[in-house]
Write a protein that binds this DNA or RNA. Structure first.
Length: 757
RNA sequence: GGACUCGUAGCUCAGUUGGUUAGAGCAUUCGGCUUACAUCCGAAGGGUCGGAGGUUCGAGUCCUCUCGAGUCCACCA
């Protein structure tokens, strides 16, 4: 053995050994009916992205648990996969198109989908090969991609089932729409930013007494032309007499009745509000309650619509400037508060201001209907069917659940699973709007009634880009094109990526080996970063409870974010991003994993830097050298594996008592998912007790080589889940020296303090 | 506005149901190439565990208040 552990040479060989021995495939091992099962579904990384340090974190933790339970003899499965990552991927692809001076509007949806598909294919192995390199003992024979045919088919069936049970509905709602990304988002995908914007006080003339005015305050004057009503609080002493009066729209002079609604805060602004139901969530709700018209003023491209007269076609920002100028000319601006601090919704993806738009979309009902999905989750938590490990995150989850609204699952993008819906054409030609590309490359937009005058249905469908059907248009659900295709027009929206990943634990087990679902569901641990607790974990609980009437996982382990050695968030702009593959090259995969895991706590961020990797690398070298010493002495004394079993009675020996204590401690800690603590316990026990004290005692003949060798074997087993490569490499040396017999350490049995079996 | 987390050695962090002289890595000082390892070994310095009060035989650990840092959520025009 060399005096230095050369991970760059050894790690790839060990990977090959594990591959040959199929350590990760639970079917490659015997099991009985009483064998306990242990399963983790891997959080699927984006198929076409290189991994980052967060991925390395989940690999380190999940592989540690997987290897531990495998060594305990449990029926162990770690099931890997990748995600198509709808918006993320399409966004990246569109950036690529932009560099070639193209946009998604240059393609029909079939072509665009195909292009993105090819792009993803080209890069889809990146994440997988990198995760393998970290030593992930996941069962790659069970690998799943979110767009695999069988996965898609299951997701579509779920949609049909939800719809049948009334838990999915289509409705006109005000949705968060990004005019740059060209799609709506769920409430979770928008950010809020504090900004200083002008607050305009605008005067409205009364219809009967035009010399008298009333003022309202607004940050959004541009859609005023479409407003139809004002509102005051019905109990406001100063203002309630205004209810029923009529004022004139300052831009169009159209009459606007004043209504009463308690949503108005008499203390704020002037105590009078203009209602813009099509572009403000509050106003939308009020309009629905009072049955007021919802008049859109802004398009999904962020431009003023035709009904805006002279403002039509202007961007919202430009229109605002012009509106203010016009109102000033009419002397209808009372004042402008330039320093009003306001909270703005922005797109999490591109940072643009979110435009609330009225769009008919599909929603998952979360708190009413046949099943109250939120109640299901709360019961899981109450009954401790699912326990959440991660610094108060259960409370955060509960807090969010209490105010959860229906989930918008429609996305106006191509890259994803198309919602299997077809709209009835006959009689609804003027309520369905489509955009399609002619063969010449010319884009056409219009109602079907208009488009069908000059084009055949086949032409339109062939070049189809988007469909917008009004909420009243009847539709059918069908995964394949309906038999009477000429009477139906396809939906073009796709599912929110999280809609398919919310079913991941169920779907991956249902589409693999026939008995996998029965064998591994509910899964044991769901391990992921706390940043996607709401996006993903909560949704998996929603859908898991719907599909299986039980929790999808018994434990949720939420690791913290990885920060740099100064505790700062990693970001490209700061230049402090750590690439896990670089660390693997420089220090080895074991060192990376150990550095990430040791003393980490669920839910708490972890700082890490070069000195941490160095320290962990030194541990692998320590393991190697301690082993080298013991192996050489064992050979000098002609020991063989028959001499090296852990003795049954260890009471008399201080060495074995201490060793057993370590075994008990580490096992207990791993059982309680205290992985960072277990790693720390092991590090100290191995280095400062076993190496610093015990091996020195061997040199002084205070401890026998035989005892020390027994101890080494136990330590290798304990260390293996954390530093799998070096321990396996040593194991192969021990095997060559006839000191152990098992083919590999990964499949050997975990130490017990009562080794009777 | 609501909720959550953190504040322990110079730095980054552990501390498992409250239980003896509060730990690790890195950094610092001193001494060592001792026949596994200088990616090492031995020794040393350094903490009134943010602050105040309380519960307890006993609190870094539980409770209350308070100061500081950060995160999540929320429709105030």
């Amino acid at each position: 053995m060399d005096s230095k552990y050369t991970y760059t040479e050894i790690e790839p060989k060990i990977l090959q050994l594990w591959d040959t021995l199929q350590i990760a495939n639970p079917d490659a091992r015997k099991r009985t009916k009483s064998t306990k099962s242990f399963s983790i579904i891997m959080p699927p990384p984006n198929a076409n992205d290189p991994i980052h340090i967060g991925h390395a974190m989940f690999v380190a933790i999940e592989d540690t648990l997987t290897r531990y339970h495998r060594m305990l003899g449990e029926d162990t499965l770690w099931l890997p996969g990748t995600d198509h990552a709808g918006i993320e991927t399409q966004y990246v692809f569109e950036k690529k198109l932009a560099k070639q001076k193209q946009s998604r509007f240059d393609f029909d949806r079939e072509t665009l989908y195909q292009k993105i598909f090819e792009y993803v294919q080209e890069n889809s192995d990146i994440a997988v090969s990198q995760i393998k390199r970290l030593g992930a003992s996941a069962d790659w024979t069970r690998f799943k991609f979110t767009l695999d045919e069988d996965v898609v088919s299951n997701v579509l069936e779920t949609f049909k089932s939800l719809h049948k049970n009334g838990l999915v509905y289509r409705d006109l709602q005000l949705v968060n729409y990004c005019t740059k990304c060209g799609t709506s988002y769920s409430d979770l995908e928008i950010n809020h930013e504090d900004r200083t914007t002008p607050l305009y006080y605008i005067k409205y003339r009364f219809q009967d007494t035009p010399q008298k005015t009333i003022s309202i305050a607004t940050v959004r004057p541009e859609p005023i032309f479409a407003d139809t009503h004002l509102a005051v609080h019905p109990n406001d002493h100063d203002k309630k007499h205004l209810i029923g009066k009529v004022v004139l729209n300052p831009l169009t002079d159209q009459p606007m009745p004043i209504i009463g609604d308690s949503f108005v805060d008499p203390e704020f602004g002037t105590g009078v509000v203009k209602l813009t139901p099509a572009h403000d969530p509050n106003d939308f709700a009020v309009a629905k309650a009072h049955n007021l018209p919802i008049v859109p003023a802004i398009s999904n491209r962020g431009k003023i619509l035709e009904n805006g007269g002279k403002y039509a076609g202007l961007s919202a920002t430009k229109a605002r400037e012009q509106v203010i100028i016009d109102l000033q000319k009419k002397q209808l601006i009372e004042k402008i508060d330039e320093k009003y601090s306001n909270r703005i919704s922005t797109c999490y993806r591109c940072g643009r201001v979110i435009e609330p738009l009225p769009l008919p979309q599909f929603f998952v009902r979360v708190k009413s209907g046949k099943q109250n999905l939120v109640k299901n989750i709360e019961k899981m938590l109450d009954d401790n069917d699912t326990s959440i490990h991660g610094a108060g995150r259960e409370k955060i989850l509960r807090n969010w659940l209490s105010s959860l609204k229906d989930w918008n699952i429609s996305r106006q993008i191509v890259w994803g699973i198309r919602i299997p819906v077809w709209y009835k054409i006959d009689g609804y030609e003027d309520q369905i709007t489509a955009t399609f590309l002619e063969k010449s490359g010319k884009t056409n937009t219009g109602t079907l009634a208009e488009l069908l005058k000059n084009h055949t249905l086949e032409e339109i469908k062939a070049g189809l880009q988007t469909t917008t059907a009004e909420a009243a248009v009847p539709y059918i659900l069908s995964i394949t094109p309906p038999t009477e295709a000429q009477h139906y027009f396809p939906e073009t929206d796709t599912f929110d990526t999280w809609f398919s990943s919310s079913q991941w634990p169920v779907v991956t087990l249902q589409t693999n080996q026939p008995d996998d679902f029965k064998r591994f569901y509910p899964t044991t641990v769901m391990e992921t970063g706390y940043d996607i607790l709401l996006f993903w974990v909560m949704r998996m609980m929603l859908m898991g409870s719907y599909l299986t009437d039980t929790t999808p996982f018994k434990h949720v382990y939420l690791h913290g974010l990885i920060r740099d050695d100064k505790g700062q968030k990693m970001s490209k702009s700061k230049g402090n991003v750590i690439n896990p593959l670089t660390v693997v090259d420089e220090f080895g995969a074991d060192a990376l994993r150990m550095a990430l895991v040791i003393r980490s706590t669920p839910g708490i961020d972890k700082s890490i830097g070069k000195s941490d990797f160095k320290a962990a690398r030194n541990l692998t070298n320590k393991v190697w050298n301690a082993s080298r010493f013991i192996i050489s002495r064992s050979q000098d004394q002609s020991l063989s594996h028959t001499d090296l079993a852990l003795p049954a009675d260890t009471q008399e020996s201080e060495f074995f008592t201490q060793l057993n204590q370590t075994i008990t401690d580490v096992s207990t800690q791993l059982d309680k998912l205290q992985i960072g603590l277990a790693a720390d316990t092991l590090y100290s026990a191995f280095w400062h007790w076993y190496c610093d004290e015990c091996i020195e005692h061997v040199k002084l003949n205070k401890l026998s080589t035989q005892e020390a060798a027994i101890g080494l074997i136990q330590f290798l087993k304990l260390l293996h889940p954390f530093t799998p490569f070096v321990t396996e490499a040593v194991w192969q040396e021990l095997r060559a020296a006839n000191l152990v017999t098992d083919d590999c350490l990964a499949l050997s049995t975990w130490p017990t303090t009562n080794p009777t079996d």
